[in-house]
Design a protein around this nucleic acid. Structure first.
Length: 479
RNA sequence: CGGGGUGUAGCGCAGCUGGUAGCGCACCGCGUUUGGGACGCGGGGGUCGGCGGUUCGAAUCCGCCCACCCCGACCA
């Protein structure tokens, strides 16, 4: 697969990205426009993402369930903003079993509506609340322009849908899950994110307030990598999710929804990858260490393979995800490049010299060439490897933070803002008017990404119009 | 939907002054190789996007259609 040099990032970032996805065998184009096949290596990464997130969801009291793929068209129409937001990108089934359907079925673009319908059946009392359900599944949005992982017609994700007795509880849930996403991104994927509130124009169709984690890719464009929405009583009213409270008063529930998709794989690729290929964070990497055996003669082969097998067993016993590349049809040099393309964090070379000296050669993926190489004894290798993986994880995060922070600017005036967003993000006061937001978008193609939560409120002038502004927002070109 | 482009082997391409298809990589077999993308020999694989027209003869010329890609509008 990895038979040629990658297009370097600084030559054509998009091309670099596409080549990595294909050559690392993360995904491939499907026969239907805009659809992709997630290949085993890409899916293994997704499974590790799922595990890391699912644990966090369970730890915060959520349970999993599965709702249908098809949603009656009329459900979408019950929430005004929701249908306006999603109708242009719906896939609709009109024929089933050869018969024209009474009512068209929408292939779910998101499941607020059908889950809202079910919640109205299940929720009758304050004692039924909160309902904290998540589902892992796929959805379809008929996008015009697609990119592997970043925007495909069909994508895999999880969507959490919760219902609460009070506004405060629902708001807390919205923020809790935003925090879960942020913590996951930073600690598992080494993707530093900025979390905050979306503007009214950027929010989810049907939400009162949307929040998101935003990550900076290496071309400085922003990638919304996870969202958490406070839906107020909008869907509860549309679907009659009502309950009797302690005082026997009928109340509408307060709901939230939150999601993170296979798009996150794109975030990992574009945060960490280099001109050799992918670099996966050790905590999520399907293969954390790959052993490349090296030998010439038959007599060497036996000795090398014996050592390789023993080292493999020791690492595996230590809980390290290790693979031996025992292919005989390609040379070690080919394998080095191949595993670099696939982003395996650590390579272990074992050859005749190592058998003789009782050593192995280690090469860390995040530091190319001689700098990342070391020669260590076979004795106690598992501990050394574990420490190295920890260090690689840490280094990746530090590097990504350094990149991000060196590309965030505080422009002095509007002219400077229009300049900095060409190669970075601007963090500026904004009056929160749609007009000023639209002006920036028209002049620069940059949009508001999010307004961080931990701001001390109350001072500053809008970078666009000069009026009083309460808080700052990130302006950036986005995916 | 507007502007531009491309369709020839799995991928990338050549052939386009008409004469019945070729190169590189990949793939299969054998042998030699193996510490940074090995080499030799042999081999398999193509309705030339589709339909129609011109012609003795079309990958090649003409017409229509289709698909995909890029730019824009739109977007998790």
């Amino acid at each position: 697969m990895s038979d040629e040099k990658l297009t370097p990032r600084n030559v054509d970032f998009s091309e670099w990205y596409n080549q990595i996805v294909l050559r690392a065998e993360m995904a491939d184009y499907a026969p239907v426009r805009g659809c992709m096949v997630v290949r085993p290596y890409g899916w293994a990464l997704w499974e590790n993402i799922q595990q890391a997130l699912d644990k966090r969801f369970k730890d915060t009291g959520h349970v999993n369930a599965a709702f249908p793929l098809f949603i009656p068209m009329s459900f979408l129409e019950k929430e005004k903003e929701h249908v306006e937001g999603f109708s242009p990108e719906l896939a609709v089934v009109t024929i089933g079993g050869g018969e024209k359907l009474e009512e068209p079925l929408v292939v779910r673009p998101t499941s607020e509506t059908i889950i809202g319908y079910m919640y109205s059946k299940w929720i009758k009392s304050y004692r039924d609340l909160p309902v904290l359900i998540n589902q892992w599944g796929n959805v379809v949005r008929w996008e015009l322009r697609t990119r592997l992982f970043l925007r495909t017609l069909e994508f895999y994700w999880q969507e959490g849908h919760t219902a609460h007795a009070t506004e405060q509880e629902a708001r807390e849930e919205t923020m809790r899950m935003l925090q879960v996403y942020a913590e996951f991104a930073v600690n598992e994927a080494a993707v530093p994110v900025i979390s905050g509130v979306k503007s009214q124009t950027e929010k989810f169709a049907g939400a009162n307030m949307s929040t998101a984690i935003e990550a900076m890719m290496q071309d400085t464009r922003a990638l919304q990598s996870g969202t958490s929405h406070f839906l107020a009583q909008n869907f509860a009213k549309a679907f009659d999710i009502q309950f009797l409270d302690e005082n026997n008063t009928l109340q509408y529930a307060w709901t939230t929804s939150w999601g993170l998709s296979t798009r996150f794989i794109g975030a990992i690729i574009m945060t960490h990858g280099d001109d050799q290929g992918l670099i996966l964070p050790p905590r999520l990497a399907p293969i954390q260490a790959v052993i490349v055996p090296i030998f010439k003669s038959d007599s060497e082969t036996a000795a090398v393979l014996e050592t390789v097998t023993r080292v493999q067993a020791e690492l595996k016993a230590a809980g390290i995800r290790v693979k031996v590349d025992d292919r005989t049809e390609v040379t070690p040099g080919f394998k080095f490049n191949d595993w670099e393309m696939r982003g395996v964090p650590l390579r272990i070379e074992i050859g005749p010299k190592d058998v003789e000296k009782g050593s192995v050669a280690l090469a860390r993926r995040d530091r190319p060439g001689r700098e990342g190489k070391s020669f260590v004894p076979q004795a106690g290798l598992a501990a050394v490897v574990a420490d190295l993986l920890t260090d690689i994880q840490k280094s990746l995060l530090e590097r990504a933070i350094a990149f991000r922070d060196s590309h965030i600017f505080d422009p002095k005036d509007y002219t400077e803002l229009t300049e900095v967003v060409q190669n970075g993000w601007a963090y500026s006061y904004w009056c929160e008017s749609a007009e000023c937001e639209a002006k920036v978008k028209e002049d620069t193609k940059a949009t508001t990404r999010c307004m961080p939560l931990d701001q001390s409120l109350g001072k500053g002038k809008c970078i666009v119009c000069g009026k009083e502004a309460k808080r700052k927002v990130y302006f950036a070109k986005a995916y």
